[in-house]
Amino acid sequence: MIVVSDTSPLCYLILIGQQTLLQQLYGRVFIPPAVFDELSHPHSPESVQGWAAALPAWVEVLAPQHIADELAALDSGEAAAIALARDLQATVLLIDERTAVRFARSQGFLVTGILGVLVDAANSGLVSLADAFAALEQTNFHRSPTLFADLLKKHGSE
């Protein structure tokens, strides 16, 4: 399985202390240099910067060969992640931002974000979905007021 990640899913997993779920679910994750730069940026949370400074062996930074002009409307990390996913013929693209998700899906990618990762991890018995959502509520993650409750109802509380 080839998995490419944008910044947001990684950042939120780090913030809630669940970044190893990616290794447990996917084994290895590729990120483009633009994503690494966003994670390392001085405005990123300290824990995220620290994680990027000591990048785990299961994360590989790899530059895309070419970023197509059609990706110019997206954030640089999103565009680079989609371009890298194209290059690697990725199985899964981890991305959260709506515009980038719509574009990636229109290109035929299987896309999931932080919530999909957490649901998959809960379904695999790796994490309590209720606990993960409670931790995510302590961050600046944007969502509708009922999203977590709806997902817990659909996927179970544990």
Rank of each mutant, 00 (worst) to 15 (best):
G50W: 13
D75N: 07
A130S: 14
A73K: 14
V4E: 08
I114F: 10
S124E: 14
V29F: 04
I2F: 05
D150F: 07
I31T: 08
P9V: 03
L21C: 05
A79Y: 03
A52I: 08
V48Q: 05
P45C: 06
A134I: 09
F133Y: 08
C11L: 15
V127H: 05
V61L: 08
L15F: 07
T20R: 12
L21N: 09
A34I: 10
A54S: 13
R102M: 15
T139Y: 08
G156V: 02
V35W: 00
Q138Y: 07
A81G: 07
Y12V: 03
I82T: 04
H155N: 12
D37E: 15
T99K: 14
L10N: 02
A63N: 07
Q65F: 08
T99Y: 14
P42G: 03
D150S: 12
G156F: 03
E38Q: 10
Q107C: 11
L129T: 01
A121H: 06
E158M: 13
A81P: 02
D120F: 12
A80Y: 06
A53Q: 14
L94P: 01
T7K: 00
L22A: 08
G116C: 11
P45M: 06
H142R: 15
Q18P: 11
A83E: 06
G113F: 01
I31V: 10
L126I: 04
S8N: 09
Q107F: 11
A80D: 04
Q107G: 10
S5Q: 01
A80Q: 02
